[in-house]
């Protein structure tokens, strides 16, 4: 297992002494080979906090997170012998808001910043930058521009490119598709799927879009009220009665299927993944 959470709890400290509990007793295992995980849950349920534990940015208040054999606990940073930095190359984390990381004069410099920090030679890093900028749906012309004059969606893509260029084993993305147009969103998700399939890397995506979950994920983790309430297959999740309670909804295609079933008073043998499958199922019963 590449990442293992054992009874992890985390509180954000606050001034008035009442600490805010953002994670409660989380147990989770993630492999670095071939998983496509979506992490969902309502706003404020602790998703971003959870992923920041995956590359040792935050340390649990109780319990432990083991990342590539290195055990992270409350007091881990006291011991300087443990180097956390290499973990951050292995587990690449793209933050929810790109403006927290962009700072160089040009997009190129910003993209090569990460790889150079991890000891990649400048020309190799530039080569990677030229690759990844295309992958995230921008052209090489963007490399010379200032990251601050880009639109929100373009900034998002640049920030993703900056992490991709580090070539992490596990890629964690905090709401990578928010603020993108539908086409750009699909293209990015295809990109992640490609990375996942071709390089057999693990992808973890935080999202609020159930269609993404249903279409791409091989595993879904649901957070609710600082607790991990579901960990399993997307198919099974959408049959769970609790999804109302967890403030989730159904993917469009399952919603349509359910309505059809109710209207026609039939039950299909399985749940379709896209319109074509639904069509086939319809042909079968009519």
């Amino acid at each position: 297992m590449a990442i293992k959470f054992e009874q992890v709890s985390f509180q954000y400290p606050s001034f008035d002494g009442k600490n805010f509990s953002a994670l409660e007793n989380i147990n989770l295992e993630i492999s670095d080979k071939g998983e496509f995980i979506t992490l969902i849950g309502e706003t404020g349920s602790g998703k971003s906090t959870l992923v920041q534990h995956m590359n040792a940015l935050l340390r649990p208040n109780t319990g432990s997170v083991t990342i590539y054999g290195i055990k992270i606990e409350k007091n881990t940073n006291k011991n300087k012998k443990i180097k956390l930095n290499p973990l951050r190359q292995k587990v690449g984390l793209v933050f929810q808001f790109p403006e927290y990381q962009l700072f160089e004069e040009t997009v190129l410099k910003d993209i090569i910043f990460g790889p150079k920090n991890f000891g990649v030679k400048e020309d190799e890093a530039i080569k990677r930058a030229k690759e990844v900028i295309k992958h995230v749906g921008l052209t090489e012309d963007y490399l010379g521009r200032s990251p601050f004059n880009l639109s929100g969606g373009e900034q998002k893509r640049v920030s993703i490119a900056g992490i991709l260029a580090m070539e992490p084993d596990i890629l964690v993305l905090d709401e990578p598709t928010s603020g993108l147009d539908p086409k750009g969103r699909d293209a990015l998700l295809e990109l992640f799927t490609n990375i996942h399939k071709k390089l057999n890397k693990t992808i973890i995506i935080i999202t609020h879009d159930m269609n993404t979950v249903y279409k791409y994920a091989s595993r879904v983790v649901v957070m609710h009220d600082a607790k991990l309430v579901y960990d399993g297959l997307p198919n099974m999740l959408f049959m769970d009665e609790n999804i109302e309670k967890w403030n989730l909804d159904l993917p469009d295609i399952i919603g349509i299927t359910k309505q059809l079933e109710a209207k026609l008073d039939i039950t299909f043998t399985k749940k379709p993944h896209n319109v074509n499958e639904l069509f086939e199922l319809m042909k079968g019963v009519l």
Binding site: L57, N85, Q89, G92, F95, Y100, Q101, F103, G162, M166
Partner: peptide, 13 residues
């Protein structure tokens, strides 16, 4: 604090 975390995840120690 948030910026430091974001940069730390790009290898700034």
């Amino acid at each position: 604090n948030k910026i430091m975390l974001a940069q730390a995840s790009r290898g700034v120690d």
